[in-house]
Design a protein around this nucleic acid. Structure first.
Lengths: 193, 193
DNA sequence: GGTAAGACTTGAACTAGGTTAAGATTTTAA
DNA sequence: TTAAAATCTTAACCTAGTTCAAGTCTTACC
């Protein structure tokens, strides 16, 4: 199996050979074609998902059937529904491949075993979640303090490669606006330079 | 010293007497009067902050001098600027007492020592951050999918005691609207029942 | 106990962004 | 290769929320 994921982890913590081997042994590799689902809303989440190659998005479908994209996950990211994974209640999110992708599934029970046996992984996930929290706080400030146009600019700076293959309607959704309004912004940009 | 904080922690993990004692020994208690600062923006954050009694708020002041409240923290909550604490770059947030409060400071270096010596605290903070992440994801969805009025209702349901002593302008800021518009919502509510 | 400062409200004019519906362009699939 | 489906754009009209300015109500302080 591809041990590429280890390079992401050893950026934050140091692993022994035993820890590496055990970790790799509990991961389930899976391939997804563009458009396929890693997780559907309404179902219980049994796996934490690591993206090896490709790109996934996680979105929430509201009662009026609008999709709200909450995250794009590319190579090296963890994704999925933490709430459903923790509580084993049905997920409110859908996670879906935006491009052909290879993912690694970390089953909940094996993850618990991992954390129990090798506390270094508690540390690793503590650091992961801590960083992710900072990112989410920033997004929250962005959402309230900046205009849609500023958010779009920041998005482009932060994820320069994404716009090539992510449909604009999902980018609009991620930015919290309608596709029509994103069109307006793009048009205005072109004429202004 | 008040060992009340331990009850919050042992809700998530089990501590030995030794772990409890060491943890308590590294905390610095501090009293704040209403309006006093626990942390000012522009300064480096040296402590993670635990609220024992009272209530603090953390806000971001944007370039146009608008305050954006990102969190209210009451008894049992951790607060402060995780980004500045981690990177030791100047904080972009201010944390301030909304009522007379007692807080406990966990200095960065002692926190690192704690995590090194007693991995059970890695587990505790991993769980904390994981839960907090779920909360932040929900807030993000709320911000985009709901109207200001719905957000206000949800806020009141979630923090029923806060509205008694938190000035409305900070609640408006937390909801991402102007105080004027919050007034309008409250007025409309009164006439409609 | 009066006054100054901050908090809250009101209303009128304005704007960022949404809605609806149609048309243009691209992608998919048979 | 072409028809169908999905994506993207355009435009007219609409609305949630802002801005500004004035007025009321509280709180704090000399």
């Amino acid at each position: 199996m591809d041990r590429n994921i280890l390079s992401h982890i050893t950026r934050h913590v140091t692993l022994t050979k035993e820890e590496e081997d055990f970790f790799i042994s509990i991961l389930l590799p899976q391939k997804l074609k563009q458009g396929e689902f890693a997780q559907k809303d309404g179902e219980i989440t049994y796996n934490f998902i690591h993206v090896n190659t490709g790109c996934l998005m996680t979105y929430f479908t509201d009662p009026k059937d609008n999709d709200q994209v909450i995250q794009f996950a590319t190579s090296g990211w963890w994704t999925g529904d933490l709430h459903s994974l923790t509580t084993q209640l049905p997920s409110i999110y859908t996670t879906r491949a935006l491009a052909d992708s290879e993912i690694l599934l970390l089953p909940k029970v094996r993850m618990e075993e991992l954390l129990e046996r090798y506390p270094v992984f508690e540390r690793y996930f503590r650091i992961m979640f801590q960083n992710s929290l900072v990112t989410h706080q920033n997004r929250l400030i962005e959402a309230f303090a900046n205009t849609a146009e500023e958010r779009y600019s920041n998005f482009q700076k932060k994820y320069p490669h994404l716009e090539q293959f992510v449909p604009l309607k999902y980018i609009a959704s991620y930015l919290g606006i309608t596709p029509e309004f994103l069109s307006k912004i793009r048009r205005k940009r072109m004429s202004n330079g």
